[in-house]
Simulated scan of single mutants.
Amino acid sequence: MKRFDDDLAFMLRYENVAWYENGKVRILDRRMYPTKIEFVTCSTHQEVAQAIADMVTQSAGPYTAAGMGMALAAFECRDLGRKEMLDYLEKAAYTLSHARPTTANRMVLTTNGCLEAARKAMDEGRPVDEAIFMRTIDSLNRRYSTIEVVAEHLVTMFPDKGTIMTQCFGETIVGMMLRVARKREKDIKLFVPETRPYFQGARLTASVACDMGFDTTVITDNMPAFVMKRNKIDLFTSAADVICMDGHVVNKIGTYQIAISAKYHGVPYFVTGIPDKAHQTIDSVTIEERDPQLVLEARGVKNTLEGVKGYYPSFDITPPHLVSGVVTDKGIFIPYDLNRYYDTEVKEYY
């Protein structure tokens, strides 16, 4: 079977995202990578859902973990009759898809696809867990190949020898844009904000970029404006957890302030992803708030006195007037015209 993770960084290879084998799911613990390379092993689909909720994996990782978790759920109920098995898998699908509220709509697409694979396997008398596993691998292949097309459009906007600023960890698009840039011999440099409190930029984006041979500089989250002015950033880019049809972008907290700075300094901001028809307006998005204790510490080391409070909205909202373009597999759209994306057939990859 052809795989589309060839020549990518360690943490973007399928086995190092999430993997189902021998009745367990193994997930790379991105909360500590690259300081430590450790995997969280889940023996039940509920443990997979908890790992997703606990940020063991982030960005696109939860979609892979959910698919592998559905394979594990099928293993758990392998001795039940057809109706009982389907009931069990439907409950598991809800548990996994709703592990994090902001992305629940798209996670449902992943788990629904797994349910379809399960029904077909039952009809054909094949092992259901294996069918869901193979469906998840196929989904990974479709996502990687689709996002590579997105990357082709994005990299076209990179100047030769350009300097690019990222935000958080866009997972697939990070690997694919770097692979495309390398193929086109675009000698780009990256400035990577650290992305508190989990440091996904410093630990994940910077690791992938360095692993793939690019000049990579990490900056703290309060440096982007100064760096844009002093270091002549050519382009700011991020992925998105949700791109609403009205052009609002929901992404890791901090994206909004970088977009404001980019607008002020004349730096274009290109967001990558697929417009989400489930969110016609920003009003339909739930902004997840996480444990405020995480703001009071850095990688487990407490920085504040007892009695000091924290506040941790996990995402923020960037309005369309700050977005230069939405980069998709069908090209680049202005944020006010996203309905046109659906004028032609859409390639699903969840």
Rank of each mutant, 00 (worst) to 15 (best):
R135K: 12
S145C: 06
R100P: 05
T102K: 04
A71L: 03
R119T: 09
D79M: 09
K83W: 09
L115F: 03
E90R: 13
V108M: 04
G67L: 01
G125S: 08
N112R: 11
D79H: 13
V149A: 12
A117M: 02
E76T: 03
F158S: 03
D123S: 12
E124V: 05
V155K: 00
E152D: 15
E130S: 13
L89F: 01
I164A: 07
H153C: 08
S139A: 13
K83L: 08
T172M: 13
A121N: 07
N112I: 00
K83F: 10
H98W: 00
G170E: 02
E130A: 12
F75G: 13
A92K: 00
A121S: 11
M176L: 11
R143H: 11
G162I: 00
A118K: 00
K83P: 08
H153T: 12
L89K: 02
I164K: 02
T146I: 12
F169W: 14
C168I: 02
T102M: 06
L109E: 14
A92W: 01
P101F: 02
A104S: 12
R143F: 09
T166W: 08
A71I: 01
A131I: 01
E116S: 14
M68H: 06
N112G: 09
E130Y: 12
V174S: 09
G67C: 01
F133S: 08
E152H: 14
R82T: 13
L96M: 03
T172Y: 15
N141W: 07
R106W: 10
T136H: 05
L96N: 01
E90T: 11
L89N: 02
A74D: 05
I147T: 15
G125K: 06
C114R: 01
N112T: 08
E148H: 14
F75L: 09
Y88C: 10
S145Q: 09
H153P: 10
A117S: 10
C168Q: 05
A99V: 00
